[in-house]
Design a protein around this nucleic acid. Structure first.
Lengths: 306, 306
DNA sequence: GATACGCCTGACAACGTTTACCGATTCTCG
DNA sequence: CGAGAATCGGTAAACGTTGTCAGGCGTATC
């Protein structure tokens, strides 16, 4: 009987109406993903990671990019609450907005936070130790013998910037090397701005022998700026990035960087969010999952010229 | 009165239940976007373009990547039909699958096709003349004086590959230059495969003086392969890409390429799809909209060495 | 032949809206 | 002051499912 009904349904191309199912099940089977405007490869990895967990087709992924979260978290909150989602994945910097988390909690919209920096005990958290990762890459340059190291920060409204910088500082302190604040410039994680600030950094009187960029896009921009000035990488200047995004592999020379397992973290976040939605009681879920970074030494860094 | 109700709703954080609205309105206010696995920047541009049209918040965008469409179009059809969408944006190569279009039409799921190559009168179409674009970039290399030009094709299951190649052939014929089939290699639009086939191309006895790659990722891969062999670009080898994706701007040297207004085309596709969904009768809509390509000459191409 | 059990059928309420309609009330204007 | 229009509150139906419950039928058990 069951079989016959299924066959008939198939023959008639019948699909149950999802709106009616949602109405009675009291959920929409929609998962949101919100992110700011980071590099394309970061977005795509995030998306693919989340989708690979959703691929049984029960849940669907709605993308909700939102610019300037830090200055208007309530607006993002409204957007998310109006979107009729069952749960939402928060990529940085939205994952670090206490006001946003407040709103979501008040309205009972479950969320999973991807690499937040503060309030690590709040909600579902998929974490990576940004500070340790920053430490690793800074230590690598110091071990090569660099002493005058420039730093290109990402968008200061992303907590990741602060975390990574903190790691750099630790590594410098351990090596007994002082940080020259004149060699710290601030970008916003994009190539365009990265290029501009890299130019001013490299044109300064005390030009560094190495550059720590807080993501790969800005690192590639720094390489381009160096070439414009007639410097070759890594002979005259070492450049290290962050993220192990596609561009780090396709750049020339391939970038030394830190792998951030973005796709895997997004999978994990989706996995835990869904487990929660499917009614696994919260206590049996660990609140937080940590992922390891990995330093990838490639051809863009070398010992400084004597 | 109206005002008072709105205030009360606001005060209570009341949001109407979207599932119930969908049920009665007989639509879900979900738009799907399906694509294969092209470069990250293409996906992101596509997405942002579509989202910029959707940003009034009435419609939401669901992403549905799907690999190997050409070999299993019906599966994608089922996925789309089960997703409860009001309409779907088809990026290549899904936009060129007649079986898929058949299924969507049979089930009355409206769709908009982005840069299809065949059946241009079917459904809503946002087109670009791939052949003319291919012609433009090939002509550029020929005008510089190149005669031995290598070609790196994209995935042959994408109609775009064929269209662009057709344009190359026209330009070659006009210049009275024969195409050497040994200098044509086939990639799949990815960096990794592009790198491999570029190596074999450049290692061949009759090494070309210029390379036409069918997208920017493969062009960048060709530059990397050239560097590995000690060739510098553009002195020893000119390389032209396709798409004007972010990587073409961030590469070194910046790539000569053809701008494909992806974001704008996605906006257009979303615009027309929504106009259709909102009940504008089909006749008053033009069936097809064309977008112009634009040759962007940058630093990766130059006259061949004497 | 009575009882218990399984499977199937049909009827009905519920989910949270929107739309339509009716009668009652208030407002506007001559 | 009265006619007509506008507004209001209330009620009911509909959207397409899922879940429950009662009742009917057939089969196995004692």
């Amino acid at each position: 009987m069951r079989q016959k009904v299924k066959e008939a349904a198939e023959a008639l191309d019948y699909h149950p109406n999802l709106a009616a199912q949602s109405l009675i099940a009291r959920r929409s089977f929609l998962i949101g993903l919100t992110y700011e405007r980071p590099s394309p490869s970061y977005v795509v990895e995030l998306q693919n990671g989340a989708l690979s967990r959703l691929d049984d087709g029960r849940y669907r992924l709605v993308v909700l990019p939102f610019a300037h979260v830090a200055s208007r978290p309530e607006e993002l909150g409204k957007l998310l609450l109006r979107a009729g989602l069952d749960g939402v994945l928060l990529a940085p910097p939205a994952s670090d907005q206490p006001l946003l988390l407040d709103m979501l909690e008040r309205q009972r919209l479950p969320y999973a936070r991807i690499t937040p920096h503060s309030d690590l005990d709040r909600g579902l958290v998929v974490a990576m130790d940004e500070s340790a990762a920053g430490h690793a890459v800074a230590q690598h340059l110091l071990a090569l013998g660099h002493r005058r190291i420039g730093i290109i920060l990402g968008d200061p409204s992303h907590a990741a910037s602060i975390g990574r910088l903190e790691g750099y500082r630790r590594a410098f302190a351990e090596a007994g090397v002082g940080i020259d604040d004149d060699l710290i410039v601030t970008g916003d994680f994009t190539y365009a701005v990265g290029y501009e600030v890299a130019r001013t950094l490299l044109a300064s009187a005390k030009r560094p022998t190495a550059v720590l960029a807080q993501n790969d896009d800005m690192a590639v921009a720094a390489i381009a700026a160096a070439r414009e000035l007639g410097l070759s990488v890594p002979q005259d200047l070492s450049v290290a990035g962050f993220d192990n995004s596609e561009v780090s592999r396709t750049a020339w020379p391939p970038l030394t960087t830190v792998n951030q397992p973005v796709a895997q973290m997004a999978w994990d976040a989706a996995d835990r969010l869904i487990a929660m939605l499917d009614g696994k009681t919260v206590p049996e879920l660990p609140q937080r999952r940590d992922h390891a970074h990995e330093l990838l030494v490639r051809a863009s860094t070398a010992a400084p010229a004597a």
